[in-house]
Amino acid sequence: MKTIGLIGGLSWESTSEYYRIINEQVRSELGGVHSAKCLLYSFDFEEIVQLQKSGAWDLATDKMIHAAVTLERAGADLILICTNTMHKMAGEVQSNLSVPLLHIVDTTASEIKEAGLDCVGLLGTKYTMDNNFYKERFQLKHNIQVISPDEEDQEIVHDVIFNELCQGKMIPNSKERYLDVIERLREKGAQGVILGCTEIPLLIKQNDTGMKLFDTTFIHAKTAVELAMVEDNNKQKDIPVMKEIIKR
């Protein structure tokens, strides 16, 4: 089994979900008391949040590169950034590695294509919803159109992420507000919705809405296990993102 490197603490609330999902997937595949081989580099999220707020993305990029290189030197065979927003610097991180960085957009795009959709809504931090790094990768590499909420709805989604979900607060009224945003995305033409912040699945579940949801946390973690185990279990399974993530 390959060793999975996790860049986490962004926030730790969702990082703990990555750890749980990865180990549950390994146990499901191998049974018994099997668990994943993984390494974790965990940030103090407040330091990263302050860099985001001040627009100091170059400094944030340096920190992410340092984390990834540290994991590779410690023995990680593939690396995950356990958050959507910090994929803003995924290209720079990958260019400093000799092991693959599993991109969250590519894994999610694979699931969207499998569902037969080509236009989806996006919930995430304002950095993810507003900036082009995320939506353009879906459009240019995967031919999937991504619709962001309007400015007022973006503020709602962003505020709930940082002031509630990243602090472990699950407020029923916030769930209703999110479901209203999802409905407005449907009205704008979205066929499904990307839960494009790894904390959002803590609040919104598929059984909360008739709209098809794409849980980036689960998809990202599950695909990591598939890649980590593909040689050991001698499967010939076609993993659509394999060719993409090993390109450098």
Rank of each mutant, 00 (worst) to 15 (best):
105 V>A: 12
106 D>Y: 11
108 T>I: 03
109 A>V: 09
109 A>K: 09
110 S>E: 10
113 K>I: 06
113 K>H: 13
114 E>K: 15
114 E>V: 12
115 A>Y: 11
116 G>Q: 09
116 G>I: 07
117 L>A: 02
117 L>E: 10
118 D>C: 15
119 C>F: 13
119 C>W: 10
120 V>P: 03
120 V>E: 03
120 V>Y: 03
121 G>H: 04
121 G>Q: 06
122 L>W: 04
123 L>Q: 00
123 L>P: 03
124 G>Q: 00
124 G>T: 00
126 K>L: 12
126 K>E: 14
127 Y>E: 08
127 Y>L: 08
129 M>G: 01
131 N>V: 10
132 N>C: 14
132 N>G: 15
133 F>R: 02
133 F>M: 05
137 R>Q: 11
137 R>P: 09
138 F>V: 10
139 Q>R: 15
140 L>D: 15
141 K>P: 13
141 K>I: 14
142 H>E: 06
143 N>P: 03
144 I>N: 03
144 I>Q: 06
145 Q>T: 14
145 Q>K: 14
147 I>F: 01
150 D>L: 12
150 D>S: 10
150 D>A: 08
152 E>G: 14
155 E>F: 08
155 E>Y: 14
155 E>L: 12
155 E>N: 07
156 I>W: 09
156 I>T: 04
156 I>N: 08
158 H>N: 10
161 I>N: 06
162 F>P: 03
162 F>Q: 04
163 N>A: 10
165 L>A: 04
165 L>G: 05
166 C>H: 05
166 C>P: 00
168 G>E: 01
168 G>C: 05
169 K>E: 15
169 K>H: 11
170 M>I: 15
171 I>Y: 05
172 P>Y: 00
173 N>H: 12
173 N>L: 13
174 S>F: 07
174 S>M: 02
175 K>R: 01
175 K>F: 03
176 E>A: 08
177 R>C: 07
177 R>K: 14
179 L>M: 01
179 L>I: 00
179 L>K: 00
180 D>E: 14
180 D>S: 15
180 D>R: 12
180 D>N: 14
181 V>M: 03
182 I>H: 01
184 R>W: 02
184 R>D: 09
184 R>P: 01
185 L>A: 00
185 L>Q: 06
185 L>D: 05
187 E>P: 06
188 K>V: 08
188 K>R: 11
188 K>S: 10
189 G>Y: 04
